[in-house]
């Protein structure tokens, strides 16, 4: 028997595998395909204070080994989530983790305060790294003082586990990670998407309505893995790794690089059962390689 349980700050996941915000809806979209109860956690679609319709179509471009998206945080707002969505998913035996967004620090605080009152939610992911919104989003996550300021403000408004989702679109991600750790984050998750763009040479027009968008998929995996490893060495709080994980081997690599848990994102689009395969694959790897607990994989890369 392999012990798959993982602790992140004050909260526990039954295994290290969760699904990334923006790639898994609110879980309901996957009920036909898989048993949500098997997941360590579901980072649900990004929430804002008010309803957002997101950016105009086209919002997606396929790229080599990946895709660009410019959805722009389309969601019905935190009140709708609390009243209508959460009651439909709270009975699942998995961690439901809201992803909190805002155009201003006050927005982030207002959304967080509402979640703080909810039963059954033990942690939030503070998203300071969305590249697809005009105000807020990544603007908070690409400078250390603003990342620290928003983390400190949300920390005061939230009693439970606070995960901060970092942007890779920075010169030194360890500086931001250390900054938010100092500001009271219990964990960091990384990476959000890389800012990219695509042009249609035939029409000479950008493919995305917003010109730029966020790149995800295996195209970013080696860079994400490097950033996880750097951040793991730089901070003393748990790291949740993501970026182009397509299978169990990818997930194990992220754990060896220092991820206490991992998130599966874009792969959910092509294989909505991939997260289950990754859970089973991590367990099998542990058995084959003599690890009695999945947590022993964390940072177990051999460098000498």
């Amino acid at each position: 028997m392999v012990d798959l349980e993982i602790k992140i700050g004050g909260f526990t996941m039954k295994n290290p595998v969760s699904t990334a915000s923006g790639t898994f809806g609110f879980g309901e979209e996957f009920i036909d395909f898989m048993d949500l109860n098997r997941l360590g956690g579901i980072f649900v679609k990004g929430l804002t204070l008010k309803n957002r319709e997101g950016n105009p179509y086209p919002r997606m471009a396929e790229t080599p080994s990946g895709m660009l998206n410019a959805v722009g945080l389309q969601n019905k707002g935190i009140d709708y989530f609390i009243k209508h969505t959460y009651p439909k998913i709270k009975h699942f035996d998995t961690q439901i983790i809201p992803n909190v967004n805002g155009a201003t620090v006050e927005d982030y605080i207002a959304v967080t305060e509402k979640i703080n009152e909810m039963d059954g939610i033990e942690t939030i992911e503070l998203n300071i790294s969305c590249p697809n919104v005009k105000e807020g989003g990544m603007a908070f996550g690409v400078s250390c003082p603003s990342a620290v300021a928003v983390t400190e403000a949300v920390r005061k408004a939230y009693d439970k586990t606070l995960i901060v989702k970092l942007s890779p679109n920075v010169t030194d991600i360890t500086e931001i990670a250390k900054g938010v750790e100092g500001a009271g984050a219990d964990a960091v998750s990384l990476v959000n998407t890389f800012l990219g763009m695509a042009i249609d040479a035939k029409t000479r027009k950008p493919i995305l309505s917003t010109v730029t968008g966020g790149l995800s998929g295996p195209a970013i995996k080696p860079i994400a893995l490097r950033m996880v490893w750097q951040v793991y060495q730089a901070v003393n709080i748990p790291v949740i790794g993501m970026g182009g994980i397509m299978d169990a081997t990818d997930a194990i690599e992220f754990m060896l690089a220092g991820s206490s848990a991992i998130q599966i994102g874009t792969a959910n689009f092509m294989d909505p059962q991939v997260s289950i395969k990754v859970i089973d694959g991590i367990e099998a790897y542990c058995k084959e390689n003599g690890f009695s607990a999945a947590k022993d994989l964390v940072g177990a890369m051999i460098t000498d």
Binding site: T23, E29, Y57, M60, V71, T266, N268, F269, P272
Partner: peptide
């Protein structure tokens, strides 16, 4: 016939206003 990533409502890429 909008471009889609997932096809089942998870990615929100294929929207029409």
């Amino acid at each position: 016939e909008n471009m889609m990533a997932c096809g089942f409502g998870a990615c929100l890429c294929c929207v029409t206003p």
